[in-house]
Design a protein around this nucleic acid. Structure first.
Lengths: 127, 127, 127, 127
DNA sequence: GTGGTCTAGACCACC
DNA sequence: GTGGTCTAGACCACT
């Protein structure tokens, strides 16, 4: 459900944060549903529990999830414009990327074709 | 000519390397043309000269540029498939981005429109 | 009668212990009087009965109360200097607090005024 | 300059956060002044550097300080109502404390005397 | 078993 | 030398 890119420059704990947010937006994780326990997720991803803990702590600080000591972590309520913020962030990254692509004399059309290809390839992955 | 994103996670010296490569590929910097001196570029970007130095050193190690002690740094000759490698890297990043966008239920078409917009906006910047 | 601060860092079962002790010292709970049954108190405070149980167990270990299987828990006899120990603890906390207040350039007089206000506000609550 | 109460229930990293905030408010740490480096402070307090790091990270997140990789951490600018917030928090703790003190039949006057004593004792410490 | 905190020690990128 | 991230392993409080 949650995938990590170990080669990425983005810290693992931030990747987890992004992942959880997206899963909530996509409706995979519902309101008040329990998140995978820290240790279990650590085992699944073969990552140190502290790293998961850091991600969950930040999610709680943002009001995205809430934690009950000794019980677990759960999807919270304050998710209003989560989706829009995420989208803006990704579109901003896309913008940066396009600057680089332009400099390589790559046409917008070719980029779009590549986008279509990515969508085909990953179809069904996030569902 | 060279732009730095200080908020980016990508190290400054790597941003410089990328920038120089793209400028060479785009033909802005020609063969045997002199690169901006380390100190001057450091002043322009208000960056520590060591950081520029590190970028230039790596570019020389890769054979992209050559340096003449006491004279300056110049665009080298071994640029064969520079372009293709760069393109592959950027397309891979684009791929990662698409995964996130799909999860937000954003259609490939909307992404392509955004790409077109970016191209319009930045037209002429990199030239 | 017993109040819990769920946001407090002090564990719930310790808060209960403190509360019971203070109620005994204040004379609200008399010698050999029955304490609220574990399950009832759990319901009132919407807390896990185990937590109440843990508090009562510790109170019994300290000799403050005694429990009769199948009957209930009762206020015990060994209460000699309970009051003094409690007072010392609270005064120590007060001391810590004053250090922080001093650093904020808040005068002792202003603190005292605040103390008076607290006493006014809570008058009758603990009785 | 920074003091930790190891017996306190309040996590060490939170105590550090409070301490730094108070030092800034009291004017001991000025705008753009460098904070003690993570490792140095860790040595002074004989605390793990990770704990200091956690405190600094949270302070940066709150906009109280800013960090420059490889250079250091510095006092930031967004300190507007820091003082008032801190005061409110401490007064709230004081309020809680008074409730306990009242139950022990300790008069407001006696509490105030104790406050005066604390102020005498710690005079000059925070300066 | 679950989250929260802390220690010890390591590596990386940047200055 | 400095901040940022991560691992490994531990203890505590709560359910």
């Amino acid at each position: 459900m949650i995938t990590i890119d170990y080669k990425s420059r983005k810290p693992i704990y931030e990747q987890i944060i992004e992942n959880v947010k997206q899963l909530i937006i996509a409706g995979v994780l519902q309101r008040d549903e329990q998140l995978p326990p820290v240790r279990q997720l650590a085992l699944e991803l073969t990552i140190n529990p502290n790293t998961i803990q850091k991600a969950y702590a930040e999610l709680e600080r943002q009001g995205i999830i809430y934690s009950l000591k000794g019980k677990g972590s759960y999807v919270g309520s304050s998710l209003h414009e989560l989706s829009q913020v995420q989208k803006d962030q990704l579109f901003q990254e896309l913008d940066q990327l396009c600057i680089g692509l332009m400099r390589l004399q790559i046409s917008a059309d070719e980029v779009c074709q590549q986008v279509q290809k990515s969508y085909q390839k990953d179809k069904g992955v996030g569902q």
